[in-house]
């Protein structure tokens, strides 16, 4: 097609009416930028406050070994949360990441311990299991038209059942130290590898979300799926891809948790999905879709584990820990809705 010069209307100088009259209601982008970062900055401030509070309350909180422990316990939830950030930005939800992670861990065990495959193959197999689950989620949502909640709820149960059946309801242990080193080794002294994996995942996810076409369509679908489709974007294809990406992160989390525990625990997993989703929301990603960030998710995940760790150090019962985490989620979602109301 040849490029024709689009027409140039002649502006009439006499016309008193401007397209953009003075005193228009639009805010400038700078305000926008600030506002979209507000939830994130709020989350960050909360994190800082929590750290200061626990440091003052207990001398054993702000120590190298405890901080390193916090980071290690953030790793698994963090990786899950990073993956599910994509799904939540599209306005969807993925409930299958918790038990899905367990199934990936079990499959890794099957590949490495039961079948004796090389480590690398086993790890790739575990991650591929996650990708496959994500793919099936995506297909169910797009082609069968199931709501994400239902599709992934079903997958959550299927993954849980399969993990138990395949493992025979018994842990699968890993003999090789090299496998455990995936999580517990220290390429950087003092910092478990699992934390490095979390950061690597976050950086990759950040780049994909903000610099690539996949990220753009993630936001576009969450903002207005119909409009995106009508613009000629194959939204089905991208939705499937997005759930598959989330599945890959689930697979990585599965490998990391197996390596950290030295075994695949088939009973584990339920509850992780809610913690991950909570981290995403605390980090400012909107459940309504269209808005969110990886940095926020990372901060959200840190808040969760700092809180849990700190409460434990202060010897607060586990039951109360849950209550506190619940309240934090309420507060986070409330400030988010406050901000939205002001925007409207």
């Amino acid at each position: 097609m040849t490029t024709s010069t689009p027409p140039t209307p002649t502006a009439s100088a006499k016309n008193p009416e401007q397209i953009n009259p003075p005193g228009g209601t639009e805010r400038r982008p700078i305000g926008q930028v600030l506002r979209s970062q507000l939830q994130q900055s709020l989350a960050f401030a909360t994190l800082v406050v929590l750290i200061i509070f626990f440091s003052i309350s207990s001398s054993s909180f702000f120590t190298v070994s405890n901080i390193s422990g916090i980071l290690l316990s953030t790793a698994v939830i963090g990786i899950l949360a990073v993956g599910t950030t994509f799904v939540i930005i599209t306005g969807g939800i993925d409930l299958s990441i918790g038990t899905g992670m367990t199934l990936c861990a079990v499959m890794t065990g099957v590949f490495i311990t039961d079948m004796g495959l090389p480590l690398v193959v086993g790890v790739i197999g575990g991650i591929a299991t996650g990708a496959l689950m994500g793919l099936i989620n995506g297909l169910n949502i797009t082609f069968l038209g199931l709501p994400p909640f239902i599709a992934t709820l079903a997958m959550m149960l299927i993954a849980q059942g399969l993990a138990l059946v395949i493992s025979g309801v018994a842990p699968i242990y890993f003999a090789e130290q090299a496998f455990k080193d995936i999580a517990l080794g220290t390429l950087i002294p003092g910092l478990p590898n699992a934390v490095l994996i979390l950061f690597a995942c976050a950086i990759v996810a950040y780049v994909v979300l903000s610099k690539t076409i996949l990220g753009r369509y993630t936001f576009a679908i969450g903002s207005n799926e119909e409009a995106t489709r009508l613009s000629g974007v194959n939204t089905r294809k991208w939705t499937i891809l997005i759930y598959t990406v989330a599945g890959i992160f689930t697979g990585i989390a599965g490998v990391v948790i197996a390596a950290r525990l030295g075994s695949a625990q088939p009973q584990l997993g339920t509850g992780y999905e809610l913690q991950a989703i909570a981290a995403v929301i605390i980090g400012g990603t909107s459940l309504l879709g269209g808005r969110g960030s990886i940095l926020g998710t990372l901060i959200g995940a840190l808040i969760m584990s700092v809180l849990i760790n700190g409460l434990r150090i202060l010897s607060i019962q586990t039951e109360w820990q849950n209550v506190v985490v619940g309240i934090v989620i309420l507060v986070a979602v409330f400030t988010d809705s406050l901000r939205r109301r002001r925007e409207a």
Binding site: K211, R216, F219, S223, N224, A227, T228, G290
Partner: peptide
């Protein structure tokens, strides 16, 4: 209206036809 409210004006105008590099995967914002 068939727009994506969370995307910018430019992102809306060229949705599906974004300038890209590196095999069509990376956006040239």
């Amino acid at each position: 209206m068939n727009l994506m409210p969370h995307l910018t004006v430019a992102q809306n105008i060229y949705i599906g036809r974004e300038p890209r590099s590196l095999g069509g995967f990376v956006l040239r914002e």
